[in-house]
Structures are given as structure tokens and as C-alpha cells.
Write a protein that binds this DNA or RNA. Structure first.
Length: 910
DNA sequence: GACTCCCGCCAAAGC
DNA sequence: GCTTTGGCGGGAGTC
């Protein structure tokens, strides 16, 4: 109470009309009054306290419930209703409520009074935030008086200012309010929300939160989260957490904090925590974050050595505070994740889908009139850093350190642009080229351009298909709508500029820009770099009879190279940058029929051994997967999908396959033929022949109507020196111990940026390209981005043929990334991406964000099941792990010794 | 007993 | 030196 008095001091003097009222506030009676006051008063601006009394309600035995309050608040959110309510309530006698309070206080003893108090729930920060939000419009006009008087708000809501600070801090983190001066805030509503979320997502990706989450979950699963500082430091170090130990606030251009106070105690600020928390949702797939994970990440960034229980508890408390406010904003909702270890509280993102870079033009506009922007690091890196981190003379709010990385990344990109071989640019893309060059990270995702490109490519591809001879199309599946241009003859591909990339080269992505990009065609003989954002670097599944991964600078890379043309399949995974190789490659090979793996850091001997060992297993798998393929190409794919999605899946699948219906049969035959070849002589025996089948140029995406995920870039390699198999084989040894091929010094030539919306627009459903940088050798056929069926669900836990595996193989073969007949298992890593059906999240993606529309309220959902997979990366930074799903429901890493069972997370909503 | 999170102490920062 | 701001953790209410 003393503190309350202290807090109220100034405000009381300024705003409270009488000492008696002040006294009321200090009495328990205020608690009762609080609820009812808030229920009735909806005053958008700082106005004199005119809270109408509702004596009857005050004395009511049946207190108002959160539900009823919410309903009222919703109705009050309407300006008309609100004004009507105000008019009516303003007519009431304000003094009545005070009298009623006094009366109640006098008549009731302490115990009796306690019973009249609203329950704890009714005093929750979430409800308080609801009340607070109800006072202001979501999208205030600039003409309005949008100032917030802290004292008045606290007074009218009848809460201590301390609570208002909690709300304001979270709102500040979303740039819904900004502090103007002491006791004074400005209300911005949701105008800036979408931009803020985009910025947060970007920063979250920069900070590799996805990997951090994975790492924590993995550790969680390996053992109880140990509080051993050394281990956690290792973990943090691997993600560069120490670099970000000073948590900084992410600003929007033009939204810099002017008040110096915000710079204080920023390291533990609720604002920063809130932003970090939101980031976790934005980068997570699915967008469900448990409090535990969030707290650990926040602690990890804070002080690793203080990772004790009290710290953890405190963090959890704060996260609850934040979550309550975010829930009131309808950005998240509480769920429970039930896994084998128990039921955990978690929160699910229900806010608008955030696609990075969509609003690049808007941001750019702001940046031109604002202090240093993300997309416009001028004039130099140093200057930018200076601007981002101004001196403490006059404290501006510090921008996030990751922005510095972003600047460097952009500069690198620009360098690469300039050094990369130029490719002809399509007219359609030319107009945007300059724009892209100016704002590569933002413009790389321009949906309209992308869509146009897709359409053009589709047309061209269809035309070229008509012209192409069938000799190069043994596996001749017709092309998806995004079919790019036809491939050049393979014999000259290595020395040619791939025709495919020509229209693509106009677009240069920033390394730092995480963009959903559709993979263009992989013409035979043309090497590509699949360039994915480091923050997405979870896993990659590849498969090739002869392929090579090439790490790209500044990204998480797992390299893998086949030194034996008979190597039939490989799966790689990467979860961190600095994992330590600990496992013997051959160890697990003897226990599994799964593909061999190869760490970049492992010896070549291990690789050869593993390859030899796996050959004997692969033939079996070919047979098995061949059967699966047949099944998956039929109706089994649909059957395996969750019931809720089966209809839509069927529809999309039908659409997708409609135009290639006739060729499917041919495919089956060809597949069988190829498989026969593989069985008999090993795949690469007829490598040229196989490669000629890769003119199925476009990433064939498995329909996944419920969720779209960011993918990456496919970047053609235009300076390939390896023109033939022999040359490649000669490079094999070198490739095993060194993946730094100078040949690929300038790999970035072009990409097609595609957003999820475009994917859907062209009936190309989501596919997953696990975050990785893969650089193929010129002669290699495949680097297989994981095209994962989003509906994989947990079906691979059964011993039945896994259609997802077949579909995946079909996809990879279709795309030309693996030879026909070669099979790769469905990568269980991807299954954690399977999220409950939420089509509305897709539909209102970019458009609504751009228009600043609020997210569409979502219907309550049934409990959902999410399968998560966690992996140990057995090798070092460049390690390669083989992952596979086993019939007993485990994810197996062939290189490592770790078996990590799949975790089925049941997400239930409260 | 675990989960939630209100509450207010009290210190840092601001004025 | 007073006020504002907000980190922090005890502990009560709820499940």
C-alpha cells in the first residue's frame, strides 16, 4: 500500500478530484469497483474521469464473468456502440459509484468483502488488457487524439500504474503504442503491427531462433534440461547467442524510441522479452511455443550462467504476463502440448501470417525518410553500424545487433551480384530488376513479380514441352504450372548458361532475407545452388547417385558428397553450426537399412565404408519404395492425409496431376525400368541416361493445403568447371575433405522468389526445402530439397509402406533431382512442420498484411496432433547425418548413435 | 503439487 | 530529491 501510495502520488494530485476518492482506491472496495468501472467505460481518449456507476452491479452477488465482459468489450469496440454506451453512461451520476463503494465498505466486514471481490481470473492482466484495448480503436485515424494518459488510464481502469506499464510495455514491443513523455503515450493501434511482425520475424530468423528451439527441444529430449552452464554455453555459442547477449529492441523505421528511459534496463525489458517471444512464434513451425522453451531461449540470451531455477521461474512469470497481453491482442492463444513427458503449457500463434519481405516496398518508403533502414544500408557498413548503435550522448533506442549482420549480408549479396555472371533478363523481370538491386532482400519476394514470372515460365515450358523430343523425357512428366524453360542438352549443360536461370537472374536474394522461393527447374547437367536462409537450417534431405554439397558462406551448411557413383541415397541434416562429430559412420549402418551418411568432417574412409555398406541395403529399399511409389501415385496419398484435409488435398492433387494424367502411367513404367536398372547395375551406370530424365524442371510440390512454409532459393551455378562425370569423379576425393570449391565462387545468378500465396495460386502447394546450402557438382544430378508432404503426419510410425516416402521420391524423380528408381525415405525431420489445418492462415497472408487488416478471427479448433522430430547432428559443423523414419516410430540417424523417438505433441486448447 | 500470475517492493532512471 | 518506470520474486488462487 505504501508503494501504491507512492505510485499514485503525482497522479493522484493531478487527476484525483478528492481525497476521498483516493481513499477509495486504497481500499479493497476498489477491486469491486474496478471490474464494473471497466465494463462500462469506454473512452477513447484521455478524458476526465467520468466512469459511470453501476450500483446494482456492484452489489450483485453474481459477479461479471470474463466472458460477459469480453462480449461487452467486443460490442463496445464498435464506435457506434461505444459512443452510445458512453452517452448513456455519462448521463449517470458519477458520485453514485463512490457512494456505493463507501456503503459497501462500511457494511461489509473483511471476510465478507473478500467474497465480493472479483476472482483472480477477473483481475488478470489479460482482461485488464482487454479493457485497455477497448478504449482505443484498432486503427486510429491520425486526426484523432490518440494520446494515452497513463494516470487516467490507471485511474479509469482502477488499477495500479504498475499494471498499465506491463501492458504498455508489450504494446510498445509491437509498436502499438509509443512513449511520448512522462505519463504520456501515443496510441498507434494496429497500423504498425504487420510491419512490426515482419521485422520481428526477420530478426528472429537472423537470430536462428528456429535452431535454438530445435536445440532446446533436442536437449530436452536427450535428458532433462541440465543446468550445466558449460553445456548451455556450448549450445548458446553454437547459435551465436553470446553475440546477442545484450537483448535489444527491434525498432521500426520512424518508430524509434525517443524517451531515454526505454534504454534503461533494456537487457531485461519486458519489451524485448515480448519481442523475442513473438519472434519465436514467427519463426516456429508449427507456430506453437511452449513457455519452457521460450524461457530457456530468453534465459540463454540473457545470462547463461544464471540459468538457475529462480531465473527460470521469473522468466516464466514474465512470459505469462506477456502472453496475457498477446492473448488479448488475439495474437496468440493458450494451448497445451501433451507429449510423452507430460502436459506443457504453450501458446499458439493465431495472429496474422507473417511473410518476410512482403512489405518491402512499404518499409523502403519508410526507410527513405527515416534513420538507417534495414534495406538501405547507406552509405557504408560502418556508417550503418554507427546509425544503428548511436553513441550514448543522446540515447536512442538500440537497434538489434543482428541488423549489423544484415548489412554485411546485403553487402555480400551485392558483391556477388556484381561478380556473378550476368544472365539475360526477361522483360517481365527487367522492370523489377533495378528495384531488386536496390532492395534485394525486400524485393526478392515481390509476389506480383514472382507470379508473373511463374506464369510466363509456365507458358514457355508448355511451349517447349511441345517441342522437346521424347528422348530426353524418359521420365516425362508434364510440368507444373511453374515450369521454367527447357533444359539445354546435357552434354553441354555444364558449360552453358542454363537456360532456366536466365529469366531468374534478375532477382537476387539477400542472404539475410528468408524467402519462400520455389525451386526452378533443375535441368540436367546444370548445377544449382539451393540457397536457403541459415535460420532455416534444420535439415536437408538429399538424394543423388552423384552429388556434392557445397557450403556457402555465411550459412549453415552441411556438405555431403558421393565419391561413388553407386551411392544411392543420402540424407543430410544439420541443426547447428558447431556440432561436434562423435559418431562412427559405420556404427549405425549395421543396425539400419537406412542410407549412409557422410560428415564433411568425417574421414573419407568412413564415407567409403558407409557407401559400400549401404549399397547392399539400398536395393531392398528400391523394391520397397517402388511399391510405395505406385501406391502413392494412386489414391493412397489422399488416403494417408488427415481427414480434415483429404478433400482439399484430393482436389489440389487432382488439379496438379490433371494435365499430366496420361504421363503418369508412363512414369510408372519408366520408374520401374529405372529401378530395374538400378537393381541390376547400380544407378549411375547409366548416369547420362538418367540425367536426361531430369528435364522435369520444376520443383514438384506435394499438395499441402494447410500450411505453407518458407523454402529457399535455387541458384544455378553458372561457373561450373566440372563438365562430366569423369571430372566429377576426379574431384571426389577432394570433395570429401573439402567442400570449398573455388569453381563455385559466384554461384548466385538468379532465383525465383515465390511466396506461399503464389504457390497456392499456381496450385503448387507447399513444399519444404530444408534450410541448407547445397551446391551441386556440375555432373551431379541431384541435390534434393526436401519436398515434403505436409500431410506426412506421423504415418511413418507404422510399418506400413510410407506413402510420403513414395511421394517424396516421386517428387524428387519428377523434378529430376534423383534418378528414376532411386528412393529416399521420407525425412522425418520434416514432420515437425506438420501443423494442424489452418487454411485461413494461408489465405490472409500477404494481402491482409499489406493492407494492415486485422487477422481474421479463427474458429476454435479441435485438439491437434503434431509430430516433432529431434535430431542430434553427429558430426561437426559440416556434418552430415542420415535420418530416417523407422517402423517403430523412431527417427534414426545412421551416422550417429542416437535414436530419438518421435514425439507426438498433442496440442489442446483450453 | 503444479500451474498461473497478481501484487507490490524497491531500485534504476528520469526530470 | 522526487517521480516515473519496471525488474523481480513472494505467494495466493486455481486447476
Amino acid at each position: 500500500m505504501q508503494q501504491a501510495d507512492g505510485e499514485m502520488g503525482t497522479g493522484d494530485k493531478e487527476n484525483y478530484s478528492s481525497e476521498s476518492y483516493r481513499g477509495v482506491l486504497k481500499t479493497p472496495l476498489k477491486q469491486t469497483a474496478t471490474s464494473h468501472l471497466v465494463l462500462t467505460e469506454i473512452q477513447p481518449d484521455c478524458q476526465p474521469l467520468t466512469t459511470p456507476p453501476k450500483p446494482k452491479e456492484i452489489l450483485q452477488a453474481d459477479p461479471w464473468t470474463p466472458t460477459s465482459n469480453l462480449k461487452m468489450l467486443i460490442s463496445a469496440a464498435s464506435p457506434e456502440i461505444r459512443s452510445r454506451e458512453q452517452r448513456r453512461e455519462l448521463s449517470d451520476n458519477t458520485n453514485m459509484i463512490l457512494q456505493a463503494k463507501h456503503r459497501l465498505q462500511e457494511h461489509l466486514s473483511g471476510d465478507e468483502y473478500e467474497k465480493t471481490q472479483p476472482s483472480r481470473k477477473e483481475k488478470s492482466l489479460g482482461l485488464l488488457c482487454h479493457k485497455f484495448l477497448a478504449r482505443y480503436p484498432d486503427y486510429p485515424s491520425t486526426a484523432e487524439n490518440n494520446y494515452i494518459c497513463l494516470d487516467e488510464v490507471a485511474e479509469e481502469l482502477n488499477v495500479e500504474r504498475r499494471r498499465i506499464y506491463d501492458i504498455l510495455n508489450v504494446l510498445e514491443s509491437l509498436h502499438m503504442v509509443s512513449r511520448l513523455a512522462k505519463n504520456r503515450y501515443a496510441w498507434h493501434g494496429r497500423h504498425n503491427l504487420s510491419k512490426t511482425l515482419q521485422a520481428l520475424k526477420k530478426v528472429g530468423e537472423e537470430n536462428k531462433y528456429t535452431q535454438q528451439i530445435q536445440m532446446i527441444k533436442k536437449r530436452e529430449y536427450e535428458h532433462e534440461f541440465d543446468l550445466d552452464g558449460e553445456k548451455n554455453e556450448d549450445m548458446a555459442r553454437s547459435f551465436g547467442l553470446n553475440e546477442n547477449s545484450e537483448m535489444s529492441f527491434v525498432e521500426l523505421p520512424g518508430m524509434e524510441f525517443r524517451a531515454a528511459s526505454v534504454n534503461s534496463r533494456k537487457d531485461k525489458s519486458l519489451r524485448v522479452m515480448s519481442q523475442k517471444f513473438v519472434m519465436l512464434f514467427l519463426v516456429s513451425t508449427p507456430q506453437i511455443v511452449s513457455l519452457e522453451v521460450a524461457a530457456k531461449i530468453l534465459i540463454g540470451e540473457d545470462q547463461l550462467e544464471d540459468l538457475d531455477k529462480s531465473k527460470f521461474k521469473t522468466k516464466i512469470r514474465r512470459l505469462y504476463d506477456i502472453a496475457n497481453v498477446l492473448s488479448s491482442l488475439e495474437l496468440i492463444k493458450k494451448v497445451h502440448v501433451t507429449e510423452e513427458r507430460g502436459r506443457k503449457p504453450a501458446f499458439k500463434w493465431i495472429g496474422p501470417e507473417v511473410l518476410p519481405g512482403i512489405q518491402g516496398t512499404k518499409l523502403e518508403t519508410i526507410c527513405t525518410t527515416s534513420p538507417p533502414s534495414i534495406s538501405e544500408p547507406i552509405p557504408s557498413k560502418e556508417q550503418c553500424s554507427k546509425n544503428l548503435f548511436p553513441s550514448r550522448g543522446k540515447q536512442n533506442f538500440t537497434r538489434h545487433p543482428s541488423l549489423i549482420k544484415l548489412v554485411k549480408s546485403i553487402e555480400n549479396d551485392r558483391r556477388k551480384i556484381q561478380s556473378a555472371p550476368t544472365s539475360p533478363v526477361k522483360i517481365s523481370a527487367a522492370s523489377t530488376h533495378q528495384h531488386y538491386a536496390a532492395f534485394p532482400s525486400e524485393m526478392a519476394l515481390l509476389p506480383a513479380v514472382t507470379k508473373q514470372k511463374l506464369e510466363e515460365q509456365s507458358k514457355k515450358a508448355k511451349e517447349m514441352k511441345m517441342k522437346l523430343s521424347g528422348s530426353a523425357l524418359e521420365c516425362g512428366l508434364s510440368l507444373p504450372e511453374i515450369v521454367p524453360e527447357p533444359e539445354p542438352p546435357r552434354t553441354t549443360a555444364a558449360t552453358q548458361q542454363p537456360a532456366l536461370i536466365q529469366p531468374l537472374s534478375a532477382c537476387l536474394p539477400s542472404h539475410s532475407s528468408v524467402s519462400p522461393v520455389i525451386l526452378p527447374h533443375t535441368p540436367s547437367g546444370v548445377s544449382y545452388t539451393i540457397y536457403l536462409h541459415p535460420s532455416q537450417a534444420h535439415t536437408v534431405t538429399t538424394y543423388s547417385p552423384s552429388f556434392m554439397f557445397q557450403p556457402l558462406p555465411g550459412a549453415n551448411v552441411t556438405g555431403i558428397k558421393s565419391i561413388n557413383s553407386k551411392v544411392l541415397s543420402k540424407i543430410t541434416t544439420e541443426e547447428g553450426d558447431n556440432q561436434v562429430a562423435t559418431d562412427d559412420v559405420t556404427k549405425t549402418l549395421t543396425t539400419t537399412e537406412r542410407p549412409t551418411i557422410k560428415s564433411e568432417t568425417a574421414s573419407q574412409q568412413c564415407l567409403k565404408r558407409s557407401q559400400t555398406l549401404q549399397e547392399s541395403h539400398l536395393i531392398k529399399r528400391y523394391r520397397r519404395d517402388e511399391e510405395n511409389l505406385d501406391t502413392s501415385l494412386g489414391d493412397s496419398t489422399k488416403n494417408e492425409r488427415p481427414p480434415s484435409n483429404s478433400s482439399q488435398m484430393t482436389h489440389e492433387m487432382d488439379n496438379f496431376q490433371e494435365e499430366r494424367q496420361n504421363k503418369t502411367e508412363t512414369l510408372d513404367q519408366n520408374m520401374a525400368s529405372c529401378c530395374d536398372q538400378c537393381r541390376g547395375e547400380g544407378i549411375p551406370e547409366d548416369e547420362d541416361k538418367i540425367k536426361t530424365k531430369q528435364d522435369i524442371p520444376v520443383a514438384f510440390a506435394i499438395p499441402a493445403p494447410e500450411t505453407f512454409f518458407p523454402s529457399g532459393y535455387l541458384i544455378p551455378l553458372t561457373q561450373c568447371a566440372h563438365g562430366n562425370k569423369a571430372g566429377f569423379l576426379n574431384k571426389e576425393k577432394a570433395g570429401t575433405h573439402s567442400l570449398q570449391h573455388t569453381t563455385y565462387s559466384s554461384p548466385i545468378a538468379g532465383v525465383i522468389p515465390v511466396t506461399a500465396s503464389e504457390l497456392k495460386a499456381v496450385n503448387i502447394p507447399a513444399f519444404h526445402i530444408t534450410p541448407f546450402n547445397i551446391m551441386l557438382s556440375p555432373t551431379s544430378i541431384a541435390a534434393a530439397p526436401v519436398l515434403s508432404n505436409s500431410c506426412l503426419n506421423s504415418s511413418n510410425t507404422s510399418s506400413a509402406p510410407n506413402p510420403s516416402s513414395s511421394v517424396l521420391n516421386f517428387t524428387l524423380q519428377h523434378v529430376g533431382l534423383i534418378p528414376a528408381g532411386v528412393q529416399v525415405p521420407a525425412n522425418p525431420v520434416l514432420q515437425h512442420m506438420v501443423v494442424p489445418s489452418q487454411p485461413e492462415n494461408v489465405s490472409h497472408s500477404s494481402e491482409n498484411l499489406q493492407e494492415g487488416k486485422p487477422s481474421v478471427p479463427k474458429e476454435p479448433q479441435e485438439p491437434q496432433t503434431v509430430t516433432e522430430n529431434f535430431f542430434r547432428t553427429p558430426g561437426g559443423p559440416n556434418s552430415v547425418s542420415s535420418l530416417s523414419a523407422t517402423s517403430d516410430g523412431t527417427a534414426r540417424i545412421s551416422q550417429g548413435t542416437l535414436y530419438i523417438p518421435q514425439r507426438k505433441l498433442e496440442v489442446s486448447e483450453d
